[in-house]
Design a protein around this nucleic acid. Structure first.
Lengths: 218, 218
DNA sequence: CGGATTGTTGAGGATACTCAAGTTAGGTGG
DNA sequence: CCACCTAACTTGAGTATCCTCAACAATCCG
């Protein structure tokens, strides 16, 4: 995008800071803004009518989020919560249509963002539909590592806090089952430091478990 | 879209007919075309490395499909099979970028198509993660009715053949369980004619089951 | 230091899968 | 038009996975 064009786009934006635990927007709220995450980490969750929660996705630096307009919805379909201190850029949703019209590069970008999400959603659907719990957890942990992990000498560090409850809500299982699985993995030396900043010590073995090419430790 | 613009778009297209059971494209194949379904009904499936199949979605008249480019993929991620005789319009994938660039209306359309699919994918994810089998089947059947059913005096007719295997692959369960559930529903008078053209006789009761506000018949 | 949140671990049981054997429906060819 | 054949479905029994319930332990945070 040309610098002049970029200027034009940024002129409409304002930035905001969120502390860990604060929410950027809540499920059901009227969608008055859309956002880009500049820095930090968010999780997007949904609550079912019965009160069960699921984690829809994690938002990483650079990601577009809260684009209810693209889904033709007046409200946000989920809640976005900062898991670490985060900085976001926000635009009035009223700008969305004109942005799409006047900046084809942004439209293409939006399409590709949605394409990526659609693929991930399909992957998770397939996992939920066909895989047993331990494999789903392996895939979820590996995905976290890929999307927001840092390599450290063959290991992968997930450097933001992720609770077992969160992992359960990503994989359609319970806190209890996640605890049992991760304990078994830690005992076998595949991972470490479950509580705050998970370290994947043997990504390769986790991958084997995820693909069902290794027995599983339960 | 202006008639002249539409003409321009249609010039690049060719149409093709598929008999029931024929495939429009197969998973893994190089994506050389994208499509619009003019008439008929398709299902899009994926096969897991272990050989399990899942139904990703049904394609209805007017739907855009096979848009691998929007997902930044060189190949089709799934297989599209005609479930009834179908007519499709196809364009060389090479036209995709120029279409998006030159016809903002098409870009907006593509975004909204993807938005709709993303929402459906999230809904199914949530169902798979939190609901028990009978409720998932209820939701899947109701979704089929909404997307491609015809109202007949308070009932809803799904007028294309749908096997129990297909429903199982939509809901992450087995043929056997689907059979037991549908048999129970048919006995209770909620549905009829499971084999070829399913008739939903009591959509309201199915909705109650889907939402967990009715005991379930297993 | 104390309360709250988060995680651990065990026992028991329900849901839904697997395996297995039969049945029905639908299409095909004689 | 009927007989046959195959694919789709039905139904039962046994069982595995994973959930629920429950009590306790550890960690975090002010």
């Amino acid at each position: 995008m040309a610098p002049a064009e970029l200027d034009d786009v940024l002129r409409g934006a304002s930035s905001r800071r969120f502390a860990a635990g604060e929410t950027v927007f809540e499920q059901g709220q009227l969608a008055t803004e859309f956002f880009v995450l500049l820095n930090g980490r968010l999780k997007v969750t949904q609550v079912t009518p019965e009160g069960q929660q699921i984690v829809v996705r994690m938002v990483n630096s650079g990601d577009l989020f809260g684009i209810a307009k693209a889904l033709r919805r007046p409200d946000y379909p989920g809640t976005a919560t900062a898991v670490v201190e985060s900085l976001v850029l926000e635009w009035p949703m009223a700008n969305w249509d004109s942005f799409m019209r006047d900046h084809p590069a942004m439209a293409v970008n939006a399409i590709q963002t949605m394409g990526g999400r659609l693929q991930e959603a399909h992957t998770r659907m397939r996992e939920l539909a066909t895989e047993e719990v331990e494999r789903r957890i392996a895939h979820a942990v590996l995905r976290l590592g890929q999307q927001s992990g840092k390599k450290e000498a063959g290991c992968i560090r997930i450097d933001f806090p992720i609770s077992k409850q969160d992992i359960a809500e990503m994989t359609g299982t319970t806190l209890h089952t996640v605890s049992r699985v991760l304990t078994a993995w830690e005992t076998a030396g595949l991972i470490e430091g479950g509580r705050q900043k998970l370290l994947i010590k043997e990504p390769h073995k986790l991958l084997l478990i995820g693909d069902g090419r290794m027995p599983g430790l339960l």
